[in-house]
């Protein structure tokens, strides 16, 4: 069923345009990488503050307030640019185990990030009083994001075509 869907999607007019205009895919990928840069730098700033390593002058709610909007904006850009890449070459992603691994890791980290945000908004002191949980959250979040970027690069090598 999925292969049939891929065949149909890659034969649509919009997919054909993206495939045939030579500069669209590299340009969309460039936007995708710039959004990854935005997420990774914001997450490093936030998670290393949670770990208690950096930005001691600022409270956790300060750092969260400053960087989380960038994370969500960049995730929206990643979703849009990623969708265009799927439309262009559906089989490259939808028939690829690494792609599903990437999406699973992404789902986990988005839930964690959203949960973190809800808790920090409800009680600014929440994470300051729970150092151990804060550290674990930071390590898990960082590992998931690093895993997502690595999977993203490996999709190209694991693709069946």
């Amino acid at each position: 069923m999925i292969p049939a869907f891929c065949d149909w999607l890659s034969s649509t007019a919009v997919s054909m345009v993206i495939q045939n205009v030579y500069w669209i895919i590299p340009t969309v990928q460039t936007v995708h990488i710039l959004a990854i840069a935005t997420v990774m730098a914001s997450i490093v700033m936030l998670d290393f503050r949670l770990l208690g390593v950096s930005a001691h002058g600022q409270t956790i709610p300060d750092v969260a307030h400053r960087f989380l909007p960038w994370v969500w904006t960049a995730v929206a850009v990643l979703f849009t640019s990623g969708s265009l890449l799927i439309i262009a070459e559906p089989g490259r992603d939808l028939l690829n185990t690494v792609f599903y691994l990437k999406m699973s890791l992404l789902a986990c980290v988005l839930v964690i990030t959203f949960g973190f945000q809800v808790l920090v908004r409800r009680d600014g002191e929440f994470w300051e009083h729970r150092r151990a949980i804060a550290r674990i959250t930071a390590v898990v979040s960082l590992s998931l994001w690093v895993g997502i970027v690595i999977c993203g690069r490996w999709i190209a090598y694991a693709a069946h075509g």
């Binding site: 990488i33 710039l34 990854i36 840069a37 935005t38 997420v39 990774m40 730098a41 914001s42 490093v44 690093v146 970027v149 690595i150 993203g152 690069r153």
Partner: peptide, 10 residues
């Protein structure tokens, strides 16, 4: 790619 993300992001 991870390194570039951090360089460009920061």
């Amino acid at each position: 790619v991870l390194s570039i993300a951090l360089v460009v992001g920061t």
